[in-house]
Write a protein that binds this DNA or RNA. Structure first.
Lengths: 205, 205
DNA sequence: ATTATCTATAGATCTATAGATAATGC
DNA sequence: ATTATCTATAGATCTATAGATAATGC
């Protein structure tokens, strides 16, 4: 039954909370947690600073809410790894989905990267609760594929780390990538070709 | 001829500047530029805050000095890529050197990662001056190896990005890696085996 | 004489709250 | 009546400097 002490949010509540979180994503992903200020978030959101604090309990609350809301979206590509598909094609499709995420959601990628880089001080419980069981279950799936001789023997944990690292690199270290890719060629097109070839060669020994 | 207006640093100068930079590496790599405070650096160095500012022109000066001093060390593994060696073995040895760096110097790795993640606001000139020409020259070397049919055709830029990403991942995202590698096996041993196999398979098609 | 260090504090920045006012919904 | 917003500001934190004192090197 619904808890009578918890009101359902009004339309204005929903809209403003959403506006604030969008602004916070922009500011936190650019400057990191500590480098971001409520002033910047308020300005980006077009609201006054006290009004921001009317909707959230403080800076940390905004950050944690943002990370929690994005967590599911962030894990989706891995969730979609399908036990009934062809192992090699499933993993290569996963690589492509992760690369697409880096291209389409670089701010989200950098937001997570900054949090993990500093030891996940606010997100650790979320990682334990959601990332870890998913990671373990997908590692188990890959191990069954290996046991069925449908993949060469490898450590699924390091395989997944390689996929995360090599795809998210294009979002997280975009400033360095764009400095070094100084011609007009499409970076993500080249990255896709490279990563597909690399993981395919490893998975089809 | 030596500039008479520039004194050579005394032994105390050298020792204290070194102590401060070591403390700053610890603090900046843990909390990022904005999250670090002069108080923390002073406390870590065992010096008073004003004394820190006697040796450096400010927080930004400490950060830039630290990054500049570490730049050369950071590029060394790539410098060592030897045009006269066997292409596959040279690149695999480079992968191993980078992984060793991630294991032995995780603070340095995270320091750079934090700076790049936020768009390299203080280090961009250094990257332009030192990283970029080295990167371009080693890409050219790899292209000549490809032209000689000693490596399969691939984009050297994305190859290098993959190597950076997959090795530095173990330092930069150590908090996540250790959360997910919860058994007692040696992470870096497994990573080495995995990465050597992955890059070898791609380079020996 | 010059170099190194300390205490005290100025001045800026930042998070958060108090308290009043305006807008909205029954 | 309740929800939303604003102005003003308290209180904490942080970088940096002023100015005095102690230690070191010619």
């Amino acid at each position: 039954m619904p808890d009578a002490s918890v009101k359902k949010p009004s339309r204005i509540q929903q809209r403003n909370r959403h506006t604030i979180l969008e602004a916070a994503l922009e500011v936190f992903s650019r400057h990191g947690y500590r480098g971001a200020t409520l002033d910047q978030i308020a300005s980006e959101a077009g609201l006054s600073k006290p009004n921001i604090l009317y909707y959230f309990d403080g800076k940390a609350d905004i950050h944690v809410t943002l990370l929690s809301q994005l967590m599911q979206t962030w894990l989706d590509p891995l969730v979609e790894l399908n036990p009934d598909g062809d192992p090699v094609e499933e993993i290569l499709a996963y690589v492509q989905r992760k690369l697409d995420m880096a291209q389409d959601f670089p701010r989200e990628s950098r937001l997570f990267a900054g949090e993990i880089l500093q030891g996940a001080p606010r997100m650790r419980p979320e990682l334990e609760a959601h990332l870890k069981p998913l990671f373990n279950s997908k590692c188990a799936l890959i191990r069954t594929w290996i046991a069925q001789d449908r993949l060469p023997p490898l450590d699924p944990r390091h395989l997944i780390f390689s996929i995360w690292a090599s795809t998210q690199h294009y979002a997280d270290f975009e400033s360095q990538v764009s400095l070094l890719m100084d011609d007009s060629t499409n970076t993500f097109e080249g990255a896709s070709k490279h990563l597909q070839a690399m993981f395919r060669s490893m998975l089809t020994r």
